[in-house]
Amino acid sequence: MKEFATTGISTVAMLREIAYESGLEVVDAAVGSPVDPPPAVVPRLLASSGTERHYPRSDGSTAFKEAVLGWLTSEVGVDLDAHQVGATIGSKEFISSLPLLLARGRPDRDVVLIPPIAYPSYAVGAKWAGLETYRVPAKTDGTLDLDAIPEEVARRALLFWVNSPNNPTGMIESLAPVAHFGDRHGVIIASDECYHDFGWTREPESLLGFGVSGHLALYSLSKRSNLAGLRIGMYAGDGDLVQEIALARRELGLMPPGPVQAVAAGVLGDREHVVEQRRRYAERLRLVSGWLENLLGVPVRLPDGGIYLWVRAPEEFNQDGATLGVMLARKFGLVTAPGADYGDARFLRVSMTISTKQMETLASRLG
């Protein structure tokens, strides 16, 4: 297995190829692409909204905004106004485009701060905006070491991405110090809270709980409602920033389709399907972590939140996540995501977007 760690076979595509070559039925747990059913009402909402005839509002219809505001009040615990929320075409395009949109009027700010282990799109967005990326160091407990950020970097920082529960580690971060850092240095804080509904050891905080000035929070219906294919999400926070972003997005034609906005408005108030989805993910996390512990002979920690296992490769695999990933693909047909893609090559990520049938397959191989 050693040779695979040194010959470049460390990408998801290559691990997927190895899994298919194994001749086993492949269980692809590399990408967090939902496999469970969306709320039953979705087809009716798509077919009956009547919003397909005209151009949709880029920042969200009145019904969409009202639903978002109600959800923010009931589920996040913050009260905002309509001018403080907007719609996105999923969350990835917003993450990737936000640095570019914000940089236009802030030429003296050319650095994007991101967590040390992070979703790759934070760095991609900075790259496409022509900005530098600075990975904020972590303390020994894994939390952000804000005091380690050089003063010169803080002065140049345009945007600071935080993510809690974190993808891929599952850590739930205290956001008060980050909010204070942004206030002190005039840095826009963008909090990716797409896994807000999936806190396990405790309830995740929202950045908006520490005020909205200079703050943006991002949410998605992809995981909570299994609507990744419809591409719909929302952002909320500082009204001036929201309006600045909304105007730019309108000029660029970044408009979530009207029927999709109608679906979002219809499902945001339904908590029952989210409770069921939480149950599914919690069970999968428990089972898969136990199977991997038995296989590897080392503890596999359950996350504080989110839908991923962040598995450290044992000594047997030279503490290299890609090498462990090769073994899992070749012997068990299980495709995972190498930790190097997120910032730590010692780990690999296992997504719990595994269907019931695939869980049965894994149980027969690993259980």
Rank of each mutant, 00 (worst) to 15 (best):
P204W: 05
S96W: 04
A157F: 06
G77E: 03
L131S: 07
D81N: 00
H196W: 11
M171V: 05
L158R: 03
Y122E: 14
F94Y: 10
P204R: 07
E205F: 13
P107S: 12
H185K: 09
A154R: 10
R156G: 03
R202V: 10
E132V: 15
E132T: 11
N166V: 05
H83R: 04
A190V: 03
P177W: 09
L144V: 11
W161S: 03
H180E: 15
V187M: 06
C194M: 10
G86M: 02
A87I: 11
A176L: 15
W161Y: 15
P165I: 03
I172P: 02
I188S: 03
A129R: 01
K127V: 12
V187A: 07
L131A: 10
E173V: 06
K127T: 15
V112Y: 04
G186M: 13
R104T: 07
G130S: 15
C194Y: 01
R106A: 13
P115R: 04
S121T: 14
G186P: 08
M171P: 01
D147W: 11
V78Y: 00
W200V: 12
V187P: 08
S174G: 12
P165E: 01
D81G: 14
A154E: 07
L158A: 07
G125L: 08
P120C: 13
V111P: 05
E152F: 05
E151F: 13
E173T: 02
I189N: 03
I149N: 01
L113G: 05
A148M: 11
D110N: 13
L98Y: 00
A129T: 06
P165H: 01
V136G: 03
N166I: 01
T143H: 05
W200T: 05
G182D: 00
L175I: 14
A176D: 11
A123L: 15
T88M: 08
R109N: 04
P120R: 07
Y195K: 05
T133D: 13
I117E: 00
D81V: 06
G90M: 04
E152T: 15
G105E: 12
A118I: 08
T133E: 12
